[in-house]
């Protein structure tokens, strides 16, 4: 994503996770805001350009260079805001003309793209811009640096280069980059600021519905994930409980004989299933029940040994759950 002039910052680094897209857009719309809002996420950046509160362009660009605009971009932005826990919102106020140039840069008509500066007559191009009273942006760049010249009615509005935070009046940096071997240019043009005022994405886009759909979708994904996790946890717990039950049966069976397994089954059933083995109160009832039944079958000495083994196994298992 291009570096853009910051103008006057209204908000910087607002946590996106606490914001709702319809509220943000409504606020900028109602405040007749002119400038742009940038949403910076780890994987993507979104730029929303406003002219007197009207949303004139939306761009979402991923780290891989993939771009989306318009309704698609609004949907992606809403999705990013809902699904991404991180992200920051910056809102910069710009002049009406500069905003028009930013729009040209983002969504204007591309007249030149990646043209080698050596291969074109730059003077003729600049003359054409002036003669055609062009509104737009000329971008000069190398692999390391870039600079932009914004035009209104063919006249330069200002100069902006990476490393600067705002528009400058001096063309020095632009000329320096233009003089670098391998420098290329892009030229974007757009309608006049007044004509742009006729466009407002907010008028034919139901942002609230896009947002609600994303929230609902995200909730369903989270619910599904939670359900799957709970199911997985339940399975793991169920397996652990089954292993513990088997261990308990082996201990009781070792001292009481094969009826011991039946006694354990009966006590587990009476205490609400094998989860009783890891519940303090129910485990105590279970142990007492087993002891009571074992007294009819096992000597006092063996009962004592069995109870010690049983208690320590259940206590150890409880600490692990």
């Amino acid at each position: 994503m291009f570096l853009l002039p910051k103008g006057s910052a209204l908000f910087e680094n607002l946590a996106v996770s606490k914001l709702k897209l319809p509220d943000v857009l409504s606020k900028l719309n109602n405040g007749s805001f002119t400038g742009y809002a940038s949403f910076v996420f780890q994987s993507s950046t979104a730029i929303l350009v406003f002219e007197a509160g009207k949303l004139v362009s939306v761009i979402v660009e991923g780290k891989n260079g993939m771009r989306e605009s318009g309704f698609q971009a609004l949907s992606s932005l809403a999705e990013l805001m809902v699904t991404t826990g991180s992200g920051a919102l910056n809102v910069y106020k710009l002049s009406k003309d500069l905003t028009m140039c930013i729009h040209a840069l983002l969504e204007g008509e591309t007249l030149c793209k990646a043209q080698d500066l050596k291969l074109i007559d730059i003077n003729a191009l600049l003359k054409k811009i002036k003669d055609d009273h062009m509104n737009g942006c000329l971008r000069i760049y190398t692999d390391e640096h870039s600079a932009m010249i914004f035009y209104k009615d063919g006249n330069p509005l200002g100069f902006f280069h990476d490393g600067a935070s705002d528009i400058e009046t001096s063309p020095a940096e632009s000329q320096k980059i233009a003089g670098t071997p391998g420098a290329k240019i892009d030229l974007f043009s757009t309608k006049s600021a007044d004509e742009l005022m006729g466009t407002n994405l907010l008028e034919f886009t139901n942002v609230q519905k896009i947002w609600d759909t994303c929230v609902a979708l995200h909730k369903s994904v989270i619910d599904k994930t939670n359900t799957e996790r709970q199911e997985r946890d339940r399975k793991v717990l169920s397996q652990q409980l089954a292993e513990l039950e088997e261990a308990v049966k082996s201990i009781v069976g070792e001292y009481v004989g094969r009826v011991g397994r039946g006694i354990v089954d009966k006590e587990i059933s009476e205490n609400g299933g094998n989860s009783c083995l890891v519940d303090a109160d129910r485990a105590e009832k279970f142990i007492k029940g087993v002891e009571r039944a074992a007294k009819l079958l096992v000597s006092g000495t063996n009962i004592k040994l069995m109870m010690e083994k049983l208690t320590s196994t259940i206590s150890l298992a409880k600490s692990e759950f």
């Binding site: 009481v256 004989g257 094969r258 009826v259 009819l296 079958l297 096992v298 000597s299 063996n302």
Partner: peptide, 9 residues
Amino acid sequence: SAIRDSDIS
């Protein structure tokens, strides 16, 4: 026959 492997069988 039910408790033949217990202590008191």
